[in-house]
Simulated assay, not measured.
Amino acid sequence: MPQAGLKAARLKTRVMKQHLKAIASALKLRHAVLFVGAGVSMSVGLPSWKTLIDHMLKDLDLDRSVMKGQDVTYQTIAECYRLDHGNIDALCEWMRKSWCVSPERIRKSALHRLIVSLDFPIIYTTNYDSNLEVAYDVHGKPHAKVSHARDMATAPAGVTQIIKYHGDFDDVETLVLTETDYFNRLTFDSPLDVRFRSDVLGAAPAPYLEHLAEIRLR
Rank of each mutant, 00 (worst) to 15 (best):
T174F: 06
A32Q: 06
K108N: 14
T125N: 01
E214M: 13
E179P: 02
L177E: 08
S198E: 15
E104I: 00
Q70F: 14
S147L: 08
H55I: 07
F35D: 11
A206I: 01
K68Q: 13
S25L: 10
T178M: 06
T174I: 08
R30G: 10
A8D: 07
S190P: 09
D171R: 15
P47T: 03
V36E: 12
S43M: 00
P2Q: 06
F120N: 14
Y136K: 12
F188C: 10
A149D: 11
R64K: 15
G39C: 07
L132Y: 01
M67G: 08
P191T: 06
H166F: 04
R107C: 08
D168Y: 13
T160S: 07
L177C: 04
C100H: 14
T13F: 14
A26F: 01
L192G: 03
D71C: 04
G158M: 02
R218T: 13
V159I: 13
Q3I: 11
R30Y: 02
L217N: 08
S190I: 08
D151N: 12
T125P: 05
R195H: 06
L34D: 08
Y165R: 00
W49G: 06
L209D: 04
K145M: 11
I122D: 01
T73I: 10
A22F: 01
R14Q: 09
D63Q: 03
D137K: 15
M67N: 04
F188S: 02
G37S: 09
K28D: 15
K108E: 15
Y74A: 14
H112A: 09
S25H: 05
N127W: 00
L29R: 15
T160K: 12
R105F: 10
Q70G: 15
I88C: 14
T76S: 10
S25P: 04
R107S: 10
H31T: 10
Y74S: 14
K17W: 03
D199F: 03
F35K: 06
R218E: 13
D137T: 14
G202Y: 04
T154H: 07
G140E: 06
T178N: 05
R10L: 15
L212W: 02
T187G: 05
S147T: 12
L6V: 15
S98P: 01
V33F: 02
I215N: 05
L186D: 12
K164M: 00
G45N: 02
R105K: 15
D71S: 08
W49C: 00
Q18M: 11
R96H: 07
F120C: 13
R107I: 08
M152P: 06
P142R: 06
V66L: 07
R150F: 08
V146H: 04
D168E: 12
D170P: 05
V134C: 12
E93S: 07
R150L: 10
R14S: 12
A9V: 02
E104Y: 02
E179L: 07
A9Y: 02
M1N: 14
S117L: 03
F35A: 07
I122M: 03
A9W: 09
T180W: 01
W49Q: 03
G37P: 09
S25K: 02
H166Q: 01
I215R: 11
E104P: 07
D129W: 09
V101Y: 06
R218S: 10
L111F: 00
D168A: 13
G5F: 00
I23L: 14
S102Y: 13
S190G: 10
P121N: 12
Q75W: 12
R82Y: 09
V146G: 04
P207T: 05
R10P: 11
A22G: 03
Q70V: 14
T73V: 12
T51S: 00
